[in-house]
Simulated scan of single mutants.
Amino acid sequence: MARPRIIPDETVFVALRHMLATTGEKTVSFGSVARATGLAAASLVQRYGSREAMIRAALMSAWDALERDTVVADSGADTVQGFLKALGGGGPDATDLALLAMDFRDAALRARAEAWRRQVESALARRLRDADAAAMLFAAWQGQMLWHVAGGKGFRLKDAVKRLG
């Protein structure tokens, strides 16, 4: 069967991010992404230039989606809990924040993370009317997400929101 000639970048990125999340960065190569997408490895090389550039492009695309989701959550939720719940996603297309934080050695990815943090803290501060409380809640929320992946379920974010608000 012939390989498809045209596959959109976003289709490649979804497959690549799935590989990163399930099997880790070491398994990502032009060959493995080619097998996952049906696109020729040579086409991936031509499109992205290097393995690192391909991974970076996939992560940048995920940051784009997360920023759009944050704007939607900010405009659609009146409460702190509603806003954070909307950002938590959980659907099949939800961005895995741990995946996005996989390599902050890249200055551009780190800058995207810092800008998103400011975006979220600003939305929280408008709801809490307190920038310091917003920063603390953001840190608690991110810590909860990190430890939830590791199996920790003792911290309840809604209790922290009640104490702050």
Rank of each mutant, 00 (worst) to 15 (best):
A15N: 08
L16A: 08
H18A: 15
M19D: 10
M19Q: 13
M19I: 11
E25M: 01
K26F: 02
K26M: 11
T27Y: 09
V28P: 09
S29Q: 07
F30W: 01
G31F: 01
R35E: 13
L39D: 02
L39A: 10
A40H: 09
A41G: 04
S43Q: 12
V45W: 04
V45S: 10
Q46H: 14
R47A: 03
R47Q: 05
S50I: 02
S50V: 00
R51N: 15
I55D: 06
I55F: 00
A57R: 12
A57F: 03
A57Y: 07
L59R: 14
M60S: 12
S61T: 13
W63C: 08
W63S: 08
D64W: 01
T70H: 02
T70C: 10
V71D: 15
A73F: 03
D74V: 12
S75N: 09
S75K: 12
G76H: 01
G76A: 01
A77C: 13
A77D: 11
A77N: 13
A77I: 07
V80H: 07
Q81K: 05
Q81H: 07
F83R: 06
K85I: 12
L87P: 06
L87H: 00
G89D: 08
G90V: 07
P92C: 00
D93V: 02
D96V: 08
L97T: 07
L97C: 02
L97E: 09
L99Y: 03
A101K: 08
M102N: 05
M102E: 04
D103P: 05
R105V: 04
D106Y: 01
A107Q: 15
A107R: 12
A108S: 08
L109M: 10
R110P: 00
R110E: 06
A111S: 14
R112F: 07
E114T: 14
A115I: 04
W116M: 14
R118M: 14
V120K: 11
A123Y: 13
A123W: 12
L124H: 05
L124D: 06
L124W: 01
L128D: 07
R129C: 06
D130M: 08
D130V: 05
A131C: 04
A131W: 01
A131Y: 03
D132F: 12
A133C: 08
A133D: 14
A133L: 14
A134S: 11
A134W: 05
A134T: 11
M136K: 05
L137W: 00
F138H: 14
